[in-house]
Amino acid sequence: MRTEGFKYVLVLPDAGCLSCIDSAELFIKENKENFNLFKLIFTGKISPKNIKNRLGSDILDKPYVYFDSINSFRVDYDMTIYPLIIYLEDEDFSFKEVSPYQSGSLDSLKFVMGL
């Protein structure tokens, strides 16, 4: 998967903090037409049908969506159980969890996306 041209990546796991995953999915659903510098990765043992049911039948057709069927982006749950926002800056990158402990993470992402 290539990330050239993207400034942000949101990695959505198949399991973990359910309310955090729900809030990230709601963010996606509300903003999916505005993702211009954004890459969205679904990872883990999640089915395309389940994703389409939750986020709309067109979600997997979006150019910014990557369905990680081989789980190469699956994060070890010893590290985090939350969706991750990855900010890409040239050769550098930083991570922010979508968690109760970083409650403004989606608002921060919305801000830098210009929404």
Score class of each variant (00 low, 15 high):
residue 6 F to K: 14
residue 6 F to M: 12
residue 6 F to G: 10
residue 6 F to Q: 12
residue 7 K to C: 09
residue 7 K to G: 10
residue 8 Y to Q: 02
residue 8 Y to W: 03
residue 9 V to A: 04
residue 10 L to N: 02
residue 13 P to A: 01
residue 14 D to F: 08
residue 14 D to A: 07
residue 15 A to D: 15
residue 17 C to W: 07
residue 19 S to D: 07
residue 20 C to F: 01
residue 22 D to N: 09
residue 23 S to Q: 13
residue 24 A to G: 07
residue 26 L to T: 07
residue 28 I to E: 04
residue 30 E to P: 03
residue 31 N to D: 02
residue 31 N to I: 01
residue 31 N to C: 02
residue 32 K to M: 05
residue 33 E to R: 03
residue 34 N to W: 00
residue 34 N to A: 09
residue 35 F to N: 00
residue 36 N to W: 04
residue 37 L to V: 13
residue 38 F to H: 01
residue 39 K to I: 01
residue 39 K to H: 10
residue 39 K to A: 08
residue 40 L to R: 01
residue 40 L to A: 02
residue 41 I to S: 07
residue 41 I to G: 10
residue 41 I to W: 07
residue 41 I to Q: 08
residue 41 I to E: 08
residue 42 F to D: 01
residue 42 F to S: 02
residue 43 T to C: 01
residue 43 T to R: 04
residue 44 G to P: 03
residue 45 K to A: 06
residue 46 I to T: 02
residue 46 I to N: 01
residue 49 K to F: 11
residue 50 N to Q: 14
residue 51 I to D: 09
residue 52 K to P: 06
residue 53 N to Y: 11
residue 54 R to G: 06
residue 54 R to W: 02
residue 56 G to C: 05
residue 56 G to E: 11
residue 56 G to V: 08
residue 57 S to I: 13
residue 57 S to H: 11
residue 58 D to Y: 11
residue 58 D to K: 13
residue 60 L to E: 04
residue 60 L to S: 04
residue 60 L to R: 03
residue 60 L to Y: 04
residue 61 D to A: 11
residue 61 D to N: 14
residue 62 K to C: 06
residue 62 K to H: 04
residue 62 K to Q: 04
residue 63 P to N: 03
residue 63 P to R: 03
residue 64 Y to P: 00
residue 66 Y to Q: 03
residue 68 D to A: 09
residue 68 D to S: 08
residue 68 D to T: 09
residue 69 S to G: 14
residue 69 S to D: 14
residue 69 S to A: 15
residue 70 I to M: 14
residue 70 I to N: 14
residue 71 N to Y: 13
residue 71 N to F: 15
residue 72 S to V: 13
residue 74 R to S: 06
residue 75 V to S: 11
residue 75 V to D: 08
residue 76 D to S: 04
residue 76 D to F: 00
residue 77 Y to I: 12
residue 77 Y to N: 13
residue 78 D to F: 10
residue 78 D to W: 06
residue 79 M to I: 15
residue 80 T to W: 05
residue 80 T to I: 06
residue 81 I to W: 11
residue 81 I to L: 11
residue 81 I to F: 12
residue 81 I to N: 15
residue 81 I to C: 11
residue 82 Y to H: 11
residue 82 Y to P: 05
residue 82 Y to F: 06
residue 82 Y to Q: 07
residue 84 L to E: 00
residue 85 I to Q: 00
residue 86 I to K: 02
residue 87 Y to M: 09
residue 87 Y to A: 03
residue 88 L to A: 00
residue 88 L to I: 00
residue 89 E to F: 08
residue 90 D to R: 09
residue 90 D to N: 06
residue 90 D to Y: 10
residue 92 D to T: 11
residue 93 F to H: 12
residue 93 F to G: 11
residue 93 F to M: 12
residue 93 F to R: 10
residue 94 S to N: 08
residue 94 S to T: 10
residue 95 F to L: 15
residue 96 K to V: 14
residue 100 P to M: 08
residue 101 Y to I: 05
residue 101 Y to S: 05
residue 102 Q to A: 14
residue 102 Q to P: 13
residue 102 Q to T: 15
residue 103 S to T: 09
residue 103 S to V: 10
residue 103 S to P: 14
residue 104 G to D: 13
residue 104 G to V: 13
residue 106 L to D: 01
residue 106 L to H: 03
residue 107 D to W: 04
residue 107 D to M: 05
residue 107 D to A: 04
residue 109 L to N: 04
residue 110 K to R: 14
residue 110 K to F: 08
residue 110 K to S: 13
residue 111 F to D: 15
residue 111 F to I: 15
residue 111 F to C: 15
residue 112 V to A: 07
residue 113 M to D: 01
residue 114 G to L: 05
